[in-house]
């Protein structure tokens, strides 16, 4: 079994400004993070997920996304940012009660010394308007192994928001090239 749960964080009463995974073991090759998130931001039912690794705050994160909200599809870029973003697919305080958004982030080769990439799926459910879904491609020019991750909202994450971090270990051999 090579998909290994590292940690699950559940936000308690009062909320939390970020969900942090620290001292990530370097025993896997890929990272998978699964979220069930709701924001306390009252700016709108769709909020941002912002992800930063190793505490790096420099403008090294780029996102290209494709999103849909039930009526319009759109694509855009956040280049050279201080976070990775997803821009839709997250429930906020004006969303229908008890609805949480689900997201998945896959970060291959996180322990390598190569520039980092990622794939993101995000979807919110609002039982009304202003829900959305997003897929995104992430890249960072940082080559350091990922040892910590922070999942940051515009304000606080709501109580009962959860995030789970898994490591996935690749096999060896078994492929041919031409």
């Amino acid at each position: 079994m090579t998909m290994t749960l590292v940690s699950t964080v559940t936000v308690g009463a009062g909320g939390a400004s970020s969900i942090d995974f620290t001292s990530i073991p370097q025993t896997g090759t890929d990272l998978l993070i699964m979220f069930s998130l709701r924001s306390l931001d009252n700016g709108g039912p769709r909020d941002y997920i912002k992800v930063r690794f190793n505490g790096i705050t420099t403008s090294t994160y780029t996102v290209r996304y494709l999103e849909g909200d039930g009526s319009v599809a759109a694509s855009g870029v956040f280049a050279n940012q201080s976070y990775w973003y997803t821009n839709t697919g997250l429930n906020g305080s004006t969303s229908t009660s008890n609805t949480f958004a689900n997201s998945q982030i896959y970060l291959p080769n996180y322990s390598s010394s190569n520039a980092k990439t990622g794939s993101v799926d995000s979807v919110s459910e609002n039982n009304a308007t202003q829900a959305g879904q997003t897929i995104a491609a992430w890249s960072s020019t940082t080559t350091a192994a990922i040892t910590s991750l922070s999942i940051i909202g515009n304000t606080n994450w709501a109580q009962y928001s959860t995030a789970s971090l898994y490591t996935i270990l690749k096999g060896s051999g078994g492929a041919s090239v031409s």
Binding site: K170, G171, S172, S176, V177
Partner: peptide, 22 residues
């Protein structure tokens, strides 16, 4: 949450360029 059943079957890192991987 996913059931932890990813079983690694094969893996390859290219040492030189290639048109395909099987």
């Amino acid at each position: 949450m996913p059931t932890p059943t990813y079983t690694p079957l094969a893996n390859l890192t290219l040492g030189s360029s290639a048109a395909s991987v099987t």
